[in-house]
Structure formats: C-alpha cells, structure tokens
C-alpha cells in the first residue's frame, strides 16, 4: 500500500531536507494553488487544506475533469476556467439573522456600549450577499442607533457584493428569515422591512442608507479605517492558522480602544496570537472586547 511506504519516506527525508515532502495527492493541490496565485494573483495558499481540497474536488466533478492535474493545466490556459474555480472555492452560506442568539447577545451586551458614542463605525468583513449586514441595520434601527452609524460591508468577491448592494432576495426565504428575526429579538413585523415583487423581495431603501459596500480582500488588503465594531463570522474557518493570525492582526489594528470583535459561533481567538488582547463580552456568542 502506497500510504505506508510514503509515510516512512516522508519522515526520513525531512531529516535531511528543509522542504516538506508531500504525498502525490497533496502535491497536485499544492501546485494548483500555486498556479492560481502566480498566474492570476488569487491567493489560496494559506487556506485550510481539508475544506479547500473538498471544494476543489467538487469543482472537478462539475467541470467533468478527471484529475487535479488536468484542472491545473486547463486553468492556466483558460482564464474563464480560473474565474469559475475562484467562485467554486468561495463559500457563501448566509441568512438574515443567522444564529439568532448572536443578535440577542449583541442587543444586550454591545448596544449599551454603542449608545455612549455620538457616532460609530462598523466593519462587516466577508459580508457575502449581504443578509447579515442588513440584519445588523435592522437591529440598530430598532435600537434607535442606525442614524448614528456607518457600516462598511466588504467582500473579496465582486459578484456577491453586487447582490448585497441590490438587497433583493428570493421571497421563498422570507418565512425562514421571519422566524430567525423573531428569535433574534426583533421588535416589529419583519414584513415592514421589505416589499414583495413577484418571486423576490426588495429590502426597504432606508436600510441601505448607512451601508457602504466595497471590495476588500482579507488575505491581501490592509486596514482602511478605525472601527468601533468588526463583525467577521464564519470566514476565518477557511483560513489556516498563519493566515488567521495575519487577519487577526489586521482586525486588532483596525479596532479602536475597547472596540468589539464578533466571530462565528464555533470560532475563537483562543488558538491565535491575539488570545490575550481581548476580553470575552459574551463567551458563547464569540463577542470580544479589545483590551486597550
């Protein structure tokens, strides 16, 4: 069996060589990712390997390609294939008021702090198609704080940002969103926030008024303002620890003193270099407060 002998080879070779020796399957993935970076500048080199690999294999099936090596050759020749791959490698799972308990905790723990500011800035990093940004706008509106804020909603992907800016979503999702809105502590009737239009709904324009949508890549772009709150949920799980540390440095440097950081439900700063730089504001909901 190739696995066994390969394993021994690896440990013996690595003693004499600084290069880490990869298994054939991993070499293919490594070369594909390097190719994508050097040919087009798309940088997936520090993405978490296991989930990246899964998405590459799912993409292969969709493209009817037999191997990662084949995809690599095709992608280097054909920019359209590389663009499709780029979309295939990005994940856009989102919903309005996704994880309602997060919004409840935000209302209880963060809103009182925000009331002390005459004006505040929120950065929603990795906003995907925008549902969670609009959820925040609704929450702030109901707390009477929306006129005092500016929300910067960014994503690396131009296509999802376009959807986010439009604020148009399938009507069939509204039943689920309404449920989540209520669980999140919503105080009004959810249908007040949108207008139905055939099979879609359009969010009310005032919800967009204080949101600035823009392209920003967490892997390659730097800080662009100072924020009172940074929300980045279920984005960093796709990065390895090196890249997570890099992005946490960016967040730390972009937060004001006592600024708030909100992560996804199963994300944590525990395993990063910034573990001691924050206090836990709401432990279970991953709301942190910058120490100084």
């Amino acid at each position: 069996m190739a696995g066994t002998s390969g394993f021994k080879e690896q440990s013996e070779l690595s003693r004499t060589s600084p290069v880490s020796i990869l298994k054939p399957n991993d070499v293919d993935i490594h070369l594909l990712v390097e190719g994508l970076y050097h040919r087009y500048g798309y940088d997936f080199r520090n993405y978490a390997k296991a989930s990246l690999k899964r998405r590459i294999h799912t993409f292969l099936k969709g493209e009817n390609l037999a191997s990662v090596a084949e995809l690599q050759a095709q992608m280097l020749r054909d920019r359209a294939c590389a663009e499709r791959l780029l979309l295939g490698l990005t994940v856009n799972t989102t919903a309005m008021f996704r994880d309602p308990s997060f919004y409840q905790a935000f209302r209880q723990q963060v809103v009182p702090l925000l009331r002390t500011y005459p004006f505040f800035r929120i950065w929603h990093a990795g906003c995907s198609t925008g549902q969670e940004v609009y959820s925040m706008a609704i929450l702030l509106q109901e707390e009477g704080l929306y006129p005092r804020c500016r929300i910067y909603a960014t994503d690396a992907n131009e296509k999802v940002l376009h959807t986010a800016k439009q604020g148009i979503y399938p009507a069939k999702q509204m039943q689920e969103y309404t449920q989540l809105y209520l669980q999140a502590g919503g105080r009004r009737t959810f249908s007040e926030y949108y207008t139905a239009h055939y099979s879609n709904v359009i969010l009310r324009p005032f919800l967009r008024e204080r949101i600035v949508f823009g392209e920003h890549n967490l892997v390659t772009d730097g800080s662009f303002n100072e924020f009172n709150v940074i929300i980045c949920r279920n984005v960093l799980i796709y990065f390895n620890q090196t890249l997570q540390n890099q992005v946490h440095e960016l967040f730390y440097n972009s937060l004001c003193k006592f600024g708030i950081l909100g992560l996804g439900k199963q994300e944590t700063i525990r395993f990063t270099k910034y573990e001691t730089a924050y206090d836990e504001l709401a432990k279970a909901e991953k709301l942190y407060r910058r120490r100084s």
Binding site: A48, A50, S51, R54, R55, V91, T93, N234, I237, Y238, G264, Q266, E267
Partner: peptide
Amino acid sequence: GYFSLSVDE
C-alpha cells in the same frame, strides 16, 4: 493534528 470547520453546502 487539529480540526477545522466549514459551513459549505
């Protein structure tokens, strides 16, 4: 050596 999570489909 460690776990990762994803919210893929």
